[in-house]
Design a protein around this nucleic acid. Structure first.
Length: 443
RNA sequence: UCCGCGUUAGCUCAAUGGUAGAGCAUUCGGCUGUUAACCGAAGGGUUGUAAGUUCGAGUCUUACACGCGGAGCCA
């Protein structure tokens, strides 16, 4: 065969992805990707190809292929980049149902000694190799579900008249004045802090656009060392004018239902790879149970846990409460003292803030926190004093109450906690591609 | 910051105070349907660091370093 002829064949060959195999049964195709794993018989070689869209077993029989090709199948290492050609066929013995009756194997780059072998590894090693760990089956499934959740979040708000509004990451002050923030030098203006929430800015947006949401990274410099904390995480925060606490809870409820039901419907394969028991996710439908903080204390009392009125609900207590229900539970009307300065007081009881948290089932804890905001100028001024916050830093925020203030509300949903819950992960660090934790900022 | 646990081959882990071991990975050989394939062989070690107890320390003691889990804080 002349070189010209080979080039012609090369151009005629259809280059496809594994996810499209079903449309090419019986046809000769080319696929490109990485060698996921391989096995061998005496005169047969099984090469598992992955290309980001799926996995495909390519079968090389000695005699059916050239010596060179058969040797190539032998000497190609795990995660080598390769190009394969062959005929697509249905094959119940192969995982995925399709197989490639392979003819050609081109090694783009032969990888030697890939660190993540097909056996167990410790978490430290895997995190050190996070850039490679992302290639493994479960991590690919998690990344895809995370992407689908992000898309569901955006679709949900976009379809309901919310406008995406990005808020600054570098901010001049602490939003709630409590959390420890990452500090950085900012030219001649002194210090700037990495944002811990876009909410105050989103409130300005809600007064401009009616309904907005902000979706971006947030940062907490707390020295938290648990499976529920990262120092850098993503949060989506809707904020709507003329919303009260009930509207806010209605929105959160529809929102969670939409996200979970969308993932259940469209990500069956990935949930299967993660071996997620989806029966508990099926229940995530309106209406979600709503209980007050006072009722939460009663539930704890029945379970022999004493919680003094005015104290915050701990992680363990959250689990006890959420175990009483078969779906996420909304807890509302917390003691004002343990909540942020901008939350509106209950007109019926000034000791209570019109706050709401949503606790995920199965011990995943708080995934949503929100409130109706204080819209009265004098009340807000008083709160700022009580919390010892510098009023001048909040003048712009107070302007929102001076010029056409209206009742409004919003909440924040932690993306990684949501991904972790829906995927059934045991640690937040697998819910984000490159986790940032107190003792790790690499790779 | 506090409490608990851990650190042995590239990776995951064994080893009663008495010669440092296995599986995976790597290299070589075998097998025509493998599914974390399997079978045979080989190479691979300053047992986290420093000191101490002991005839003898991977093992016991102390300090330090690093990591993991939990508490607090929060999404």
């Amino acid at each position: 065969m002349s070189i010209k002829f080979l080039i012609k064949i090369r151009y005629l060959m259809q280059i496809i992805h594994i996810s499209d195999l079903k449309n090419y049964i019986g046809q000769e195709v080319t696929l490109r990707g990485w060698l996921f794993n391989k096995r061998s018989g005496g005169k047969v070689r099984f090469v598992i190809l992955r290309d980001g869209t799926g996995y495909l077993q390519c079968v090389y029989f000695k005699g059916n292929v050239t010596e060179d090709t058969f040797d190539a199948a032998d000497r190609t290492g795990q995660e080598s980049s390769i190009e394969v050609t062959g005929k697509v066929k249905e094959e119940p013995r192969a995982a995925g149902g399709y197989e490639l009756d392979a003819k050609g194997l081109t090694i783009i780059q032969n990888a030697n000694n890939y660190p993540i072998t097909p056996k167990d590894h410790g978490i430290e090693f895997l995190l050190d190799n996070r850039h490679l760990w992302l290639r493994s089956k479960k991590q690919v499934a998690i990344l895809k579900i995370r992407h689908r959740i992000v898309k569901a979040i955006r679709d949900f708000f976009d379809d309901r008249g919310f406008t995406l509004m990005d808020t600054p990451i570098l901010t001049p002050n602490a939003v709630e004045g409590t959390s420890t923030l990452f500090e950085t030098k900012y030219f001649d203006l002194g210090s700037a802090y990495l944002t811990q929430s876009g909410q105050l800015y989103a409130e300005a947006g809600a007064m401009a656009l009616g309904k907005v949401y902000t979706f971006g990274p947030t940062f907490r410099a707390e020295k938290s060392k648990t499976r529920r904390h990262l120092t850098e995480f993503w949060m989506v925060e809707p904020e709507a004018a003329f919303f009260d606490l009930n509207d806010n809870m209605d929105l959160a409820e529809s929102f969670l239902e939409y996200i979970v039901q969308t993932v259940l419907k469209e990500m069956k394969n990935e949930l299967g790879i993660l071996e997620r028991d989806t029966s508990k996710l099926e229940n995530v439908k309106k209406p979600l149970p709503r209980i007050s903080y006072d009722e939460a204390i009663e539930i704890l009392k029945k379970n022999n846990v004493k919680l003094e009125w005015g104290k915050d609900i701990s992680g363990a207590d959250e689990t006890i409460i959420s175990n009483q229900f078969d779906r996420p539970v909304i807890v509302h009307r917390y003691p004002a003292e343990i909540k942020a300065f901008y939350m509106k007081r209950d007109p019926e009881n000034p000791k209570i803030a019109l706050a709401m948290d949503v606790l995920a089932p199965e011990g995943y804890g708080e995934i949503i926190g929100g409130s109706q905001r204080e819209d009265d100028l004098d009340q807000l001024l008083e709160r700022i004093k009580e919390h010892n916050l510098p009023q001048e830093a909040f003048e712009w925020y107070l302007d929102l109450r001076r010029y056409g203030t209206v009742p409004h509300a919003g909440f924040g949903l932690g993306l990684e906690r949501t991904v972790s819950w829906i995927c059934g992960l045991d640690h937040l660090r697998e819910a984000i591609p490159f986790p940032r934790m107190i003792y790790r900022n690499t790779p």
